[in-house]
Simulated assay, not measured.
Amino acid sequence: MFATSPSELWSVERMLSVSGLEFMRAILDGSGPHPPIARTLNYRLDMVEEGRVVFRGTPLFEHTNPLGTVHGGWYGTLLDSAMACAVMTRVPEGSYYTTLEYKVNVTRNLPVGTEILCEGKVSHAGRSTGVATGELRGAADGKLYATGSTTCLIMTG
């Protein structure tokens, strides 16, 4: 279920009452709301485990730039989501995170309509920072379309 209004998102209190891994699993199993941006950009959470998440998505014509190629923001948003949500799986109950910075390297043009898997993996999760990397690959052939890295700030509620 995609949230369609702010009232459908979890309250801060409810989000802080579970670990980040529990929060991410709730989104995956449908007991928590899927982020509204995922509907807009045509992607969804596909897999969650501690330190790793995978999103599945397909760019549409609506995600192209004036040249007709998939906009770099589509790559960036999926990588930011996967990498930061991977960090979230390592955030303890009573804490939350925010992205401090992320970097994206596009390795090749992603044709419109190509289904992808976007994986985020944690390399470090401490008390105050989390670091993760990501890869955006073709679901059918495993071709690498983009990579990324991120640093997230972990804060107590």
Rank of each mutant, 00 (worst) to 15 (best):
T40E: 14
F61S: 14
Y43H: 01
I116N: 03
T77I: 08
A82I: 00
V18C: 10
E13H: 11
L117F: 07
R127C: 04
T151R: 08
G32H: 01
E49K: 10
A3F: 03
S81R: 10
M155T: 15
G157H: 04
R127Q: 11
V70F: 07
E22S: 05
T98S: 07
A139R: 09
G157C: 06
R44D: 01
R39S: 15
M88D: 06
L21W: 13
K143G: 13
E135Q: 06
L100H: 03
V104N: 00
P66Q: 11
E8S: 12
R108Y: 00
C152W: 05
P111N: 08
R14G: 09
L78N: 01
S19L: 10
E115A: 08
G126T: 01
T99L: 04
S19Q: 09
S5M: 14
M15E: 15
A38S: 08
E115K: 06
G126C: 01
F61Q: 15
G148D: 14
A82P: 00
G72E: 01
S81T: 10
E62D: 12
M47K: 05
G120V: 13
M83C: 06
H71D: 00
L136N: 04
G130W: 03
D141F: 07
Y96I: 14
R137W: 12
E119R: 13
A26T: 03
Y102I: 02
T40S: 15
V87E: 09
I154G: 04
E49G: 09
Y75A: 01
T64F: 04
R52M: 13
A86E: 12
L45N: 08
R56Q: 11
P66H: 09
K103T: 15
A3N: 03
D141L: 08
T64W: 09
S31P: 03
L110Y: 07
M88Q: 10
I27E: 04
T69V: 12
P36M: 13
R14Y: 12
T99E: 05
R137D: 05
L60A: 07
V91I: 13
S19G: 11
Y102C: 02
F2S: 10
V87L: 10
V106A: 07
L21P: 00
P111E: 07
R90K: 15
G126E: 01
S7C: 14
P111M: 05
M1R: 07
M83K: 02
P92M: 15
K103N: 15
Y96G: 15
L79Q: 02
T77H: 02
W74F: 00
P66V: 05
A26M: 07
R39N: 15
A125R: 02
G157S: 04
T129N: 00
T64S: 03
K103P: 05
L153H: 14
V53A: 01
A38W: 02
M155H: 15
M1H: 06
G72K: 02
T69R: 09
A140K: 14
V131C: 01
S19A: 12
M24E: 03
G126K: 00
S5T: 15
M88W: 04
